[in-house]
Amino acid sequence: MKIMVAVKRVVDYNIKVRIKPDESDVDISGVKMSVNPFDENAIEEALRLKEKGIASEIVAVSLGTTANQDVLRHALAMGVDRAVLVASDTVLQPLGIAKLLKAVIEREQPALIILGKQAIDDDAGQTGQMLAALLGYGQGTFISTLVIEGREAIVTREIDGGTQQLAVSLPAVLTADLRLNEPRFVKLPNLMMARKKPIETLNAAELGVEFSPRLQQLKVSEPPVRKPGIRVASVTELLEKLRVHEGLLI
């Protein structure tokens, strides 16, 4: 069984992003970039299925500029077999990304496609569901466990207030929650080796799909800040403030 994982290059989660002076967008020049955390869970799960003898080949795909080669190298260093860059210099949004991924999937024919449940830059959480729709496949989103049984993926999904178990027919699209697994650390020798591996590049414009952005960002800004708080010296003072100043009946 072939597995495809989608890997997005995002600003590292530890970085506080700045806003450009003209407020047109965030300024990510010179900022540390990483694999989207959820996509590392997707890669890790695919690797475990290969180690169990269930998967035969893992292909990682990333869409974006040639800079995205670094996240593909990270995926190769973790252990995926092949890497594909869908190159485009234009703004890519979930619907367009889903259409481009679909074109790659039609060439690669994986039985399982695993994405992250959300990208930590746009916080959209849409691409996997959109891809499943376009392919006409079943979907298992926000998954925290995965077992392959015959022609089905048995998944646990994290839902509000609990969990849900589904059996999704293969081929299927799944999206990984952080709790799916603990991604392995990449060892330096593996990273060195991954530098030498080839990355196949496809030109997005040549995949025969329409992927122009439907959403226009007009402006970005700092979120409103809360008014500065007060330090209290003791539990007694805290309760006094809550009762007298805030009128809480506690």
């Binding site: 979930p94 849409q126 996997g128 729709a133 999904r157």
Partner: peptide
């Protein structure tokens, strides 16, 4: 916005060939 709608609406949006705006 919640786990229920996050699961369904992006799929519906793609079937309608429109973008979605989350949260």
């Amino acid at each position: 916005h919640g786990a229920f709608s996050k699961n369904i609406l992006p799929r519906a949006a793609a079937l309608l060939d429109v973008a979605m705006i989350s949260d």
